[in-house]
């Protein structure tokens, strides 16, 4: 298992990452408006990049989505079966719906297992290296949304 969902030794990378990201901690999170089960507008008006989003989803220290989900990437071994398979998710959900599920799925389902990737409030006992910053930045959320929206059957 990789260092992302670190059930083992803390990786060296995580320390570097925490240092890097602590720069974000001073700035408040971009605000957003929920409409139904969606956040229709991109966070901070940013434009997502699907290729960067794909890298974030596969990366074991950042999104680390594959501990729980399957994506259509035959070269990725040991994908998780905790959440729904994300193949074709771009057809099932529009960008606004995808954004809300990434930002904070509990806005829509209080009992969700899906972690809140853009939230710092109301979390308990967060490890120091992850405190006061979201798991993904606004730009990173938009990148991942762009990638997920591109997951459509050929």
């Amino acid at each position: 298992m990789g260092p992302g969902f670190r059930f083992g030794r803390p990786g060296r990378l995580a320390i570097g990452l925490a240092g890097l990201l602590s720069a974000h901690s001073a700035t408040a999170l971009e605000s957003y408006t929920v409409v139904g089960d969606a956040i229709p507008a991109p966070l901070g008006g940013r434009i997502g990049d699907a290729a960067r989003g794909r890298a974030l989803v596969l990366d074991r220290t950042q999104g680390n989505c594959l501990i729980c989900h399957h994506v259509p990437e035959p070269d990725e071994p040991f994908q998780g079966t905790i959440g729904p398979d994300l193949a074709g998710v771009g057809v099932r959900l529009d960008s606004g719906q995808l954004r809300l599920r990434l930002v904070d799925a509990s806005l829509f389902n209080p009992r969700t297992v899906m972690p809140p990737y853009f939230r710092t409030e109301g979390l308990r006992d967060v490890a120091p290296q992850y405190r006061d910053r979201p798991a993904l930045t606004a730009q990173e959320i938009e990148d991942v949304v762009a990638y997920l929206a591109s997951l459509r059957p050929l």
């Binding site: 509990s106 972690p115 979390l123």
Partner: peptide
């Protein structure tokens, strides 16, 4: 039973709710 950490998960969510599912290779 309480949610914790940046991923906001409780032990029970995995070890009661998701028993038998795959978390990566585990």
């Amino acid at each position: 039973e309480r949610r914790q950490g940046q991923l906001n998960l409780a032990c029970t969510q995995c070890h009661d709710g998701l028993v038998g599912r795959k978390l990566r290779g585990d």
